[in-house]
Amino acid sequence: MSPLLIVAAAVVALLLYVIVSYNKLVRLRNECAEGFSSIDVQLKRRADLVPNLVESVKAYASHENTVFTRVTEARAATLAAASIPQKEAAHVLMQSALTGLLGIAEAYPELRAVETFTALQAELSDTEDKIAAARRYYNATTRRYNTALDQIPTNVIAGATGFERREFFSIEDPADREPVAVKL
């Protein structure tokens, strides 16, 4: 084999490797985006439950205005948020506001007997579960994507083609930011 052929083969192999790695990064980036939109759907769904929840609690505890205002504000923040940090901030706000709202409900046994309220409460807790599930998927995917961006040699390809790190969404355990080795 002539040296030229060897060089040509090496160049082709390198090129193929670059293409495969690039495609992998694109795929991971898309998965992150899909994962985030799934969180977004659930955040909106939760925000949509707020007006009805407020209405039903108001019927029994109309004087608790600060709590209602907080929840309504959190809802507005959720709907207005555009970037990931904004959405995360709105999510934290909403969580504490809802905790306050449900805390009031605890104090009114007659409210807990109202069917519409218990149905709303069940739907709320289901939505919270879905947010948690979507968040887990998004954070796991983001971790994989960020790890790929850090690794040699994909980091060179990523740097040259403009891939950027993604931010985690409201992660509880700091250890979850670190890449994990899956043992099989």
Binding site: G35, D126, D129, K130, A133, Y137, T141
Partner: peptide
Amino acid sequence: HRTVENAAIGAGMP
């Protein structure tokens, strides 16, 4: 149904 739905979300299935 809820359990399946949540697991599908957690797995990132559309």
